[in-house]
Design a binder for these strands. Structure first.
Lengths: 211, 211
DNA sequence: GTGCAAGTTTGCAATGAGTGCCAACTAACA
DNA sequence: TGTTAGTTGGCACTCATTGCAAACTTGCAC
């Protein structure tokens, strides 16, 4: 993965990684707000000014990779069967997201989850990327089902799905961590009820069309 | 409304109002980021330090009153009929929101809408209050229907409703003109589209918008 | 290799939000 | 008239973030 890079790119990737790692260390030890960008840069052995050549803001450290949810949804849309309804496609995308362990680099993911609960600016940022992802999914879904969905309906559909899942998740994760299995199950149960009007009844991938 | 206040409260209310008005003037003239808190305080004829005795952050200027959506939802829950389902109650709450002119103080509301589109920190803040309102509604709804809804399902249900409406609304307002009339119209269209799946069934709300 | 252009690193100086501290001031009330 | 509690606003400070410019490095061509 590090091969095929020019020296420049290689060094750049290393510095970036050093910044992320240093930040994770300090965040874990001292918390988000107590850690200054100057601290992070120093720990990564670069000048403070250099930090901003890699990340525009402090929050960006916690949201590095492209969102896995978006990719899952894109894949689900791309891999749809000829008789799938839009709602079925979304259901499949969401179950994929539930499956994979949230996302890569578990260290950062854990910190992100923690600071979303603790730090307003991080929470705001998370909600913004979620909103962006949602809009992007809606756009692609409408493209994939030009006969069934106009842009507005697609956005409403995706909003309902994502809203239901995140609503349930917020309550489930509010005070305390739990084992992933029971969370997944609880989310599925709750969203099944909440989304019944959109989905029809017992719909599963390959099952009867709803709506 | 200004009566029955002590002199102290009266002055405090006046200063607060002066700050909001000054901010609105400057925001309209120069934009959000170009206006500094020092500017606003000066225009309101108070010291910069005093500003922070009234608003904790600059964004707070744009989100002053308690959210009207929350009140509408609380009213709808309180005024439910003996045979209403949770979905019917939510439906009525959201139609009320659609009805009344978005919310009070149209000046600020317009600025808010503008800066939610333009300024990330404002957008983040808006999403956070929305998320909070949503959770609060879910909590109360679950309380009102202890037999039908557990906390998680309630959160999923509210998330689905609100997510659908805001998803649709975002698309409708995206590039869009932002004159007051078209906003109102967009809200109506969004609720109509977003709530369609629920309206078709056993739900017959008192004041629901037609499709 | 040499050397130039493009990309990178940093220090320095600013700006602006937000906070702690503290002294002056004022409404509330006995 | 005092005492007390709430309000005001100056000062100094921390931090994120940006613009600028000089010193370096790497990529690439000759």
């Amino acid at each position: 993965m590090l091969a095929r890079m020019s020296l420049r790119e290689l060094k750049r990737a290393r510095t970036r990684q050093a910044l992320v790692t240093a930040a994770a260390d300090l965040f874990e030890r001292d918390g988000y707000e107590q850690t200054t960008i100057a601290d992070i840069a120093a720990a990564a052995e670069v000048g403070t000014r250099t930090f901003f050549g890699y990340f525009a803001t402090k929050e960006d450290l916690l949201f590095p990779e492209t969102d896995g949810r978006l990719r899952a949804a894109i894949d689900a849309i791309a891999g749809r069967g000829p008789h799938d309804t839009p709602a079925q496609v979304l259901l499949r995308a969401l179950s994929i997201v539930g499956d994979d362990s949230d996302d890569l680099s578990g260290r950062l993911a854990a910190l992100r989850l923690r600071f979303i609960a603790e730090v307003p600016s991080v929470r705001g940022r998370a909600l913004q990327t979620q909103s962006d992802v949602q809009q992007e999914i809606a756009r692609r879904l409408a493209e994939a089902f030009p006969d069934e969905l106009d842009a507005v309906t697609s956005a409403a559909l995706v909003g309902a799905f994502v809203g239901a899942v995140t609503g349930a998740l917020q309550v489930l994760l509010r005070d305390r961590p739990r084992d992933p299995g029971s969370v997944q199950e609880a989310v599925e149960r709750a969203t099944a009820v909440a989304l019944r009007p959109w989905v029809g009844h017992d719909v599963r991938p390959g099952g009867a069309p709803g709506v």
